[in-house]
Nucleic acid binder design. Structure first.
Lengths: 315, 315
DNA sequence: CTGAAAGCGCTAACAC
DNA sequence: GTGTTAGCGCTTTCAG
């Protein structure tokens, strides 16, 4: 069922069939109809491999992210896939496990069959100089030489802190490596967790329990908590309840990040999250812009934040 | 940087280069070395499009699933991607939104650039007769004519019920459409939710609160609850606490499904979940078996269950 | 063991 | 408007 078959059936040349299939060039109404009929009768389907051999474009991009288990990342993945679909390209998902080696792998030329990469890295620098078109998605700037779409962590944290109230002792629970994203100006105490998981957040809060239950000699008891990551919010809420604290009566809690988990925590947790749809559309747009050469500039975009007030801040 | 360049550089023919690159055929040690050197020096990378034009194989499969937001599905997606990677194929993720029309779309011949489809359908029947190689993943049999890998819901529910205790009034919370998966023999009361989300489960439990808090004239108060879906478990736990019930003192709770959410609920929830790794390996293996013609039989496989006991059943 | 040539199915020049 | 002729980069016959 090749194009030649259709051409023969319709009594025209391949070029004409191609023109009809792609809707380009001039074809008379009669010929067009004849070709379409032949395509229909033969059940012809263009061969994507042949097409991309010529166009040197696969019509597929890679989305490389740490993992799919977190609701935040799953939400971004869904949005990216949707945006890509709208643009007519497929998405190969590549979980890196946050391993720089595997992140580097996807940035190597010839790493796969895809045209370019959207990368959500785990570190602040890229493991290699990318050999393929790439747009980085993250909550911070990683490297000036690559295009990037950012949902700025500092701004999110600041907004989340505001949402928990205007005054009171503030604690921010964050993965160790994210600790320096907390703006000094907030005067917050940072409780470091091993990583951004719920379990790590739980352990971190329990380890610093005096901060929440009684305060320390130098610090009054914390009554405002902001946590980085929608998943970790669950762990923090769980830990605070375990310490016998009521949310929001004793402590008001807000999470930076979305992804579904906070909505069904007990109580539901207020979130400050990037507009993932906007994020995805910009990222996909930038990458495709690189690919078709319509925009070769290395851009740095920031996306808007969405605040969802829930019971954890006393809504 | 084509194969012809390498051939010229090494002073051999393209055929020889091809043989070296693919490790097939007989090439003398000297020639092999010369070709490898040329490849190295030129930084040659084989063109995947040209390769798949010949092999009529893209080296990519589609994973079509309702969405990525649920931990259960995200876990399956991760496992499938890992299994596919091991087998050397990429995975295009296609969220269908549970829409039969979109499920049908991915089963249409020529739907994409991929070689075959792993489908997690939302309904019990496929929307169309598949036009591409397909393996269905699910918790029930959908159609005898397609290959399928199943984590049987009935068995999971039965095991979960056992884990909540040997006796006592049993309630199963399940999405309406899954209600008939609950084995009669358990003598359970089924509480139907709109869907498998946490929110729907919460509302369902609250709507039937008398069942849990005081019992009905005909039924004693339920003290064992099984819920379908790792996500819905969160909603059920939240609802039970809202009703003033203690887990596990007043009611023991177990979830069918995994995905991370149950582990960080309060209290952590016991789960009965399919071995997703095994599931993924079988599914990918079957699909690739179809593709390379090494196994053309339509198989029906069942996978094992993993029981994770946590505090919600009084562990 | 290696080379030359003929495609894989499509698109792109360049004619008519 | 439409046909002809070359390729895209790789894998195969088929020779040698």
């Amino acid at each position: 069922m090749t194009m030649a078959d259709v051409a023969a059936r319709a009594g025209v040349s391949k070029k004409t069939v191609s023109a009809v299939v792609n809707g380009v060039g001039q074809v008379s109404r009669r010929t067009d109809a004849r070709v379409r009929a032949a395509i229909e009768e033969l059940g012809f389907l263009p061969n994507p491999a042949a097409r991309s051999l010529n166009s040197r474009r696969a019509g597929v991009i890679t989305l490389a992210l740490p993992h799919l288990g977190s609701g935040d990342l799953a939400a971004i993945a869904s949005a990216v896939i949707a945006a890509a679909e709208t643009a007519g390209v497929g998405v190969v998902v590549e979980p890196t496990g946050g391993d720089p080696a595997r992140e580097g792998e996807v940035l190597r030329p010839g790493a796969g069959i895809t045209d370019g990469v959207l990368l959500i890295p785990s570190r602040r620098t890229l493991p290699v100089v990318p050999g393929v078109p790439v747009v980085v998605i993250g909550d911070r700037m990683v490297q000036r030489t690559v295009a990037q779409v950012v949902a700025p962590a500092e701004a999110s944290i600041t907004v989340a802190a505001e949402v928990t109230g205007e005054s009171g002792e503030l604690v921010v629970v964050a993965a160790e490596e994210d600790a320096d994203l907390v703006p000094e100006s907030l005067g917050a105490t940072v409780v470091p967790a091993e990583d951004a998981s719920a379990g790590a957040a739980f352990r971190a809060v329990v380890a610093e329990r005096t901060l929440f239950s009684s305060g320390t000699p130098n610090r009054p008891r914390a009554d405002r908590v902001v946590t980085l990551g929608g998943g970790s919010a669950i762990g923090v809420a769980h830990a605070l309840r375990t310490l016998g604290l009521d949310i929001p009566a004793d402590v008001r809690l807000a999470a930076v990040g979305g992804g579904g988990e906070p909505a069904f925590a007990d109580p539901p947790i207020t979130t400050v999250a990037p507009d993932v749809r906007q994020l995805a559309e910009i990222a996909v747009g930038r990458l495709l812009g690189h690919l078709d050469g319509s925009d070769r500039t290395v851009r740095y975009d920031e996306v808007g934040l969405l605040v969802t007030r829930r019971a954890s801040t006393g809504s």
